[in-house]
Amino acid sequence: MKSILEVKNLSFGYEKNKKVLNDVNLSIEDGSITAILGKNGCGKSTLLDCIIGYNEYDEGQVIVDNADIKGFSPKELSRKIAYISQNTTINLDYTVLEFILFGRTCHLAFGSAPKEKDYKIAKENAEKLGITHLLSKDINKISGGERQLAFIARALTQESKIIIMDEPTASLDYGNQLRLFEIIKELKEKGKTIVFTTHNPEHVKLLGCNVAIINDGEIIKKGAASKIITKEFLVEIYGEIVKRY
């Protein structure tokens, strides 16, 4: 299968001479699910921030659809990659419908706002995720799980091929985590490429997807979850404590 997203020799640090990511190489296949697994603070979110073009790296490349993302305008890049963040603080009272419509921005010309067609797309995606009843509610007054669904609806409304999720299960209870995994699988069926970060190996096993293990800013292993997530490997990463469970 062809690669849709490639990270080549990427190094990045927030401060000079202090690298958070060190020579990261990663290839993501079109229409696949890939988990980036690692301990807290190992560089998972930093890597995602480089992939979405938020972190301005000096060394290496991020290639999407065979082109370096540095050559894309924000609009072009957002038509290719949608991003679901770990925590976005919204102090203004946007409705869920308005929030989902934000995903149409990369399809709008300067000076224009969403039209009838855009409302239709937003509402269809809300229907797919079963959140039509929330459309007129304040985005800040719905539960964590519902908010996550609103984010996914926005990403679908953006109509980009790749969806990046930073710790998507962070604020979800067990039931909603499983529901999210179902949605991720459905998105794959529809041809979307999903990349998400997690610090929980169980999530990767449950999804049975591809996995890239990141440790201290370096990708130390990648491949199918079934082959990589073994007890021995978890002991190697997380220490002897794993053996007790």
Partner: peptide, 13 residues
């Protein structure tokens, strides 16, 4: 209003 990262990923400079 959503901040720098959200703006970037939604296609706004």
């Amino acid at each position: 209003s959503l901040g720098a990262k959200e703006s970037k990923t939604l296609g706004v400079n």
